[in-house]
């Protein structure tokens, strides 16, 4: 099944979403992915089982316009993006702008930092690690990180 993502620019977001609304599309979800230089937002819409996506890349220090003026139910996703990723979403409708209190978290924007280069899962330290396992680069660094993470995990 081929899936298409239409790339759009940040200033054109509201126009594109307005077109979707006028065509009768339902907002399905808004997904935020942290990429190394910013955020990649995917807006998904559906009409009569026809699924399509708009893709938007926002730089780290950038901001994105809220679409609650067109789709009121987008506040759920926008508040979540703001609380978890620290993404600056502006002009959310007044009655549903929870200003960071939607998600009760102990630290602000816990998913703000981009994912590190993939590290293997924490393997409990066996005395003789199996030699035949094909390990990614940087094995020496991993051993110390493993001990730390292992202590944290069992703590």
């Amino acid at each position: 099944m081929k899936q298409e993502y239409t790339e759009i620019e940040s200033p054109a977001l509201l126009d594109n979403v307005k077109e979707m609304k006028e065509d009768g599309y339902r907002l399905v979800q808004i997904c935020c992915t942290r990429v190394p230089d910013g955020y990649e937002l995917t807006y998904s819409f559906d009409k009569e089982y026809n699924f399509c996506h708009l893709r938007l890349t926002v730089p780290e220090s950038g901001w994105v316009m809220s679409i609650t003026s067109l789709y009121w139910s987008a506040f759920i996703y926008e508040n979540e993006m703001h609380d978890l990723f620290g993404l600056d979403v502006r002009h959310i409708a007044n009655d549903v702008d929870y200003k960071g209190t939607f998600y009760r978290l102990s630290e602000k924007a816990p998913w703000h930092t981009p994912p590190k280069k993939p590290a293997p899962p924490v393997r409990p330290q066996a005395k003789q690690p199996p030699v035949s396992k094909a390990a990614p680069a940087g094995e020496a660094v991993k051993t110390t990180a493993k001990a730390e993470e292992g202590a944290k995990e069992h703590g």
């Binding site: 899962p121 924490v122 393997r123 409990p124 330290q125 066996a126 005395k127 003789q128 199996p130």
Partner: peptide, 10 residues
Amino acid sequence: ADAIRVDRAG
């Protein structure tokens, strides 16, 4: 869940 630890030598 990394619940198992195996030591081949020991």
